[in-house]
């Protein structure tokens, strides 16, 4: 891929450096230890955190932010643990993902991966109940991912019908559970949900 120098954004690295977790980006000396040990690269050969960092340092802002591979990191910390330069690679990628999400919110970018939708749906249940509520998460995530209620519920049933039956049969969720009739089916709500609301409002600046 030829690099068009006139399209580079020399400020992109500073953007990452200013994002929490992105502070050590410029320490990278491109040794590729991150990528060689990555369990995702083993399965998806195109996945290359070293290259994402190099492109970021060069200022290839658009290419980096629209790279679908940003969203398949499993946050396993192998790259972070092995990096000889303490780049904290996992956190750098998270910082880049957050910049991409901000760009999407501003209407400048379309993220194809459903991961931001998933993370938001997860955190919405934490904000509302104080704990993760799996079913609430799924009921928000699937319709948004599929772009409609009917197709969303269909996709959810496809993924979770068998799983739900298994959990009910084992008494881990639902009416056969030894821990209350609707354990796992209804949300487990904490008392201080007002504190959760404050945390999300103040941290996310909502």
């Amino acid at each position: 891929m030829p690099i068009k120098t006139w399209e580079l954004d020399p400020n992109f690295k500073n953007e990452i450096l200013n994002e929490p977790g992105g502070e050590h980006l410029t320490a990278c000396y491109q040794c590729s230890t991150c990528t060689l040990g990555c369990p995702i690269t083993e399965i998806v050969p195109s996945y290359n955190p070293r290259k994402i960092i190099q492109m970021s340092l060069l200022g290839m802002r658009n290419e980096v932010l629209s790279n679908p591979d940003l969203w398949i990191c499993a946050i396993c910390q192998t790259c972070t643990a092995r990096c000889p330069q303490d780049v904290v690679v996992g956190d750098v990628l998270a910082a880049i993902r957050r910049i991409a999400e901000k760009e999407e919110e501003a209407g400048n970018l379309k993220i194809e991966s459903p991961r931001p939708l998933f993370e938001k749906a997860f955190l919405h249940t934490v904000e509302k109940y104080g704990r993760l509520y799996d079913i609430g998460l799924a009921l928000e995530y699937y319709p948004k991912r599929e772009g409609g209620k009917v197709s969303g519920i269909k996709a959810m049933m496809n993924d979770y019908k068998d799983f739900g039956m298994r959990m009910a049969f084992k008494g881990k969720m639902g009416p056969l559970g030894g821990h209350g009739l609707l354990k796992g089916v209804l949300p487990s709500k904490i008392k201080k949900t007002d504190v959760m609301k404050k945390i999300f409002e103040k941290v996310e600046g909502k």
Binding site: D91, A94, E119, F122, L123, K202
Partner: peptide, 18 residues
């Protein structure tokens, strides 16, 4: 009255800390 830790889904360190 413990709350969720944010798991892997809270990517903002400040949110995790809170």
């Amino acid at each position: 009255d413990w709350n969720c830790c944010g798991a892997a889904e809270a990517e903002d360190p400040k949110l995790v800390y809170a």
